[in-house]
Structures are given as C-alpha cells and as structure tokens.
Write a protein that binds this DNA or RNA. Sequence first.
RNA 1: CGAGGUGUGGCGCAGCUUGGUAGCGCGUUUGGUUCGGGACCAAAAGGUCGCAGGUUCAAAUCCUGUCACCUCGACCA
Length: 480
Amino acid sequence: MAKPAKQEFVQHITPRNENFSQWYTDVVLQTDLMDYTPVRGAIAMKPYGNRIWELIRESLDKRFTETGHENVSLPMLIPESLLLKEAEHVEGFAPEVAWVTQGGNEVLAERLAVRPTSETMFCTMFAKWVHSWRDLPMKYNQWCSVMRWEKTTRPFLRTSEFWWQEGHTVHATAEEAQEETLLMLEIYRELCEDVLAIPVFSGLKSEKEKFAGARATYSVEAMMQDGKALQAGTTHNFGTNFAIPFEIKYLSKDGDLKYCHETSWGVSTRLIGAVIMTHGDERGLKLPPRVAPFQAVILPIAAHKGGVMEHCEKALDQIKAAGIRVKLDDRDNVSSGWKFNEWELKGVPLRLEIGPRDIENDVATYMRRDTFEKGTLPLENLAEEVKKLLDEIQENMFAQALAFREAHTKNVYSFEELNEQVQGGYAKTMWCGSLECEENIKEQTGATSRNMPFDQTPIGDKCVCCGEKAQKVMYFSKAY
RNA sequence: CGAGGUGUGGCGCAGCUUGGUAGCGCGUUUGGUUCGGGACCAAAAGGUCGCAGGUUCAAAUCCUGUCACCUCGACCA
C-alpha cells in the first residue's frame, strides 16, 4: 500500500473551517489539556492545560505584586444574607448559584452559597479591616475556583466550576478607584497581547452588559478565528455601591467618617480557550512561547546511532540553563514522524531535531510551529539562537492574530452593513446609547455590544440602528 | 430551556430495521527487524454495548427515564 497522505494523519481533528466548534472540542480533548468529569459541566484540568494556567498565573502575579497587590484566601461558602445585601448583584447572580443546605446530618438554618464571585465576602471582611485612611488603599487578590450553574457549558469557555483570580480593592477616593480600574484593565491588555499574543480591544461596557452591582465595567475583547468575540477579562468600578450596604467606612484625615470606593477585576481559565481559538490551526494547538509548557522539544533522530543521544542531552542542558522550558523526547517506542505530528498537535512553538547528519555539520535542524519554516542552528550557541527564535515566534503569532482581527473588523454606517459585518467579525459603529437600539441589534443580528473604545473619535453622527443623534463609538459582534 | 443528532475494549467504527449474551482497524504488552514526516513481522492481553428501570425464555438490538457530548436557536457579566 502506498504511504498515506499527510492529511490522513490529522483526520481525527475536524477541519477548522468546516465546523469550528467541533474543531475546538477535538483539539481540546486530543491535546490532553483537560477531561470531562462526572460533574455536569465541570472539567478536570490535566497537567498540560494546568501548566498553561500556572504560567498565566505566574505572569499575572508578578504584575499584581509590582503594582502593590497582595494575595489572600477567603472561604468558598457565602451565607445567603451577605449575598442579598446588594440588590442588583444578587439579582444578577441568583439564577446560577449553587447552594449548600446541609452540614453533616444537620439542616442549616441559613443556606450557604458556593461562591459565584466573592464581592460580598470581601466586602464583609473589608468592613472589619478598614478603619482609617491609613489602612487605604487595601489591594487584595485571590486565586481560587468559583461555581456558576450554567445552562450550557464548553470546556474552558464556560464551565460550572472554573479557576480564576479575583482582585478586590478598597480606596479612599473615587479618583483612586477609577485609576485602579483602568490600571488593571491595562494589565489585562498587556497579558493578552504580550504574553498570550492575543490582540484585544479595551473599552467601557454598556449599561446593559456591565457587571451586576458595578457603576462601570471595562473589558478586553478578543476575536476568535470564527469571527466571534470573547470577553477575555473585565474590571469593575463599584464606586460606593457595595460600601454603603456593607458599611465599609474609614475615618479621613480631617476626622470625617467616609464611605470607601471599591473595584474588582478578574480573568479565568477561559483565557486558555482564547489561546486555542485565536491561534490554533488544522494541525491543532499553536501555543505562544510565553505560555507554552514546553517552548522547545528536542527530537533525537536515529537515536541508536553513536553520539546522537549525547548531543541531544548536551543541547538539553544548554537550553535549560538558559531558562527555556525544553523537553527531550527520548521515547523509543514511536518513530520520529509520529513525534513530529504529536508535538505539532500539542502546539510546541519550536522543534529541534538532532541526528547524524546534523552532528556532522555541528547544527540542529529546527521547525517553527507558527510558520512551519525549517532551518538549522549552530550547536555551539544553540540556547541563544533558540531564545531569539522563540521571541520571533511570539511576535509573529501576535502579528498573525492582529492581521486576522484587522481583516475582520470594519467601520459600518448602516444597519444592513452592521448585520453583514457581525456575521463574521467586529463592527465598529455609532450608537445613540439607548437600550432599545442595543436590544434591537441583538434581536435582529445576534450581535451584542462589546465595548466602547477609549478613543471616541466619531466615525459618523447617526445611530446605526435608529438614525437619531449618535452618542458613542461602539463595537458590536456575536460573542461567546 | 426548545429542535435535531451521537453514546459499543484506550481511540475510531460496524452490528440495532428482521432480539438468540459482541466484531473490525488503530493503540497496548512481549520478542525481533527498523529509525531525517505518523515503520514492519510474529504472538498475546483487553469490552457485556453511557447509566437506571421495563418488556421477553432471551436485550447492544424493543420501550420509558436519565446523563454526557455535537449542531442550530433561546438564555447568560
């Protein structure tokens, strides 16, 4: 029988353009990122997926620390009475809260919510911890999992239980709270663009789309390769909305008792889904070097031949010493070709091959996952060359994703144009600011308002929906 | 939540219409030959058919319920 064509080896992944959802599910399962569990809508993060989350976490923690935040850990159960304190908040979350009603054999007098988010618990604690202007600002963050009883779930994008960080801060003034809200948004933008190589639009959410209980919500919005938007992170300015019902007050310098101003912000394991859907291709996952569990993999070719393994191990030590996450795949039960395909599927940014022919020339053969370009690197200063290539790959992946987004983002000036554009991308348009128009657009096109960019230079003067005087520049698109 | 589809060794599937207690390919294990894009030969192990009921002498197959996944729609910070 003739050698099967390459296509046949990847046929277990549904082509991306044929059925994006199925492609996503195939990639997620076959790359060993996660698995389904006996709990409805809850996934198990396997080592490969968990490592990506750890790398995101390390990267964020560093930025949080640099900007004066500290990590804490609060209980996962929240008494119902706390949840009820802020009306808008409870209304927003009530439908998706899971409840604990019994402890051991004892039925609880007050049921406990499994946290869907911890504003109410943080606020309760802040009320105990904040007394004086000297205690402020108080800038805390926690890494934990939360539970929301979602009706439909998808690995990473929307699961009943998911892992995230939630920052909660308390400030003396409205100005400081606003500054914090925007600073954290900028940190999220930086994480997405510089680390995950995902271009995002930063901006302000509409009243309709803002967080339950917030005065203002900001988001970073990414675009997936099916043209749909994914909210990658949000930051909220609460003003005194929670401080009043929870009585978070401080004694100011001049002796007045004042309400505090608060913020909260979070990103979740959803970001892993964003990475998959932004960069993945027909061969599977494509990981940006900065969050790849293995940035490079070394494959010995004809490992049994003299010197091959020795050279591979030497290369491994050298690259590892340079602080690069590298793996030597020395399995002898699968062929090189098999390994090529497997590591491409798993998205490793750079493949290095070392075989007799390379050794003869004092080089390693490489292949970039982002461009499939092949070449050779001198063994002598392999680590430096690898580092350089990884930086190039990181940059190029961002450039590719940005080019895709730009190609799928358009200014639109009429309802017809809007409707057409949101079938496969972002529409930037003018909006009168009314809920009616926002709802009409959603009903008739399926698109929701994403956010209002900080640069509000008008691109017209009439609302795309009602034709009345436009107030805002807004991005609309279908969203996850 | 509504409409449609799927669920059979680790993975991908056949069998179901016309009930008679499972079959193929890949993978796995052992031995050998190979090794620069998913190698080959030989031998072996591995499942009671998503789960729970029901009909029947007999259920992967028929009926009911339920769970999970996929598609479209609704809903969702």
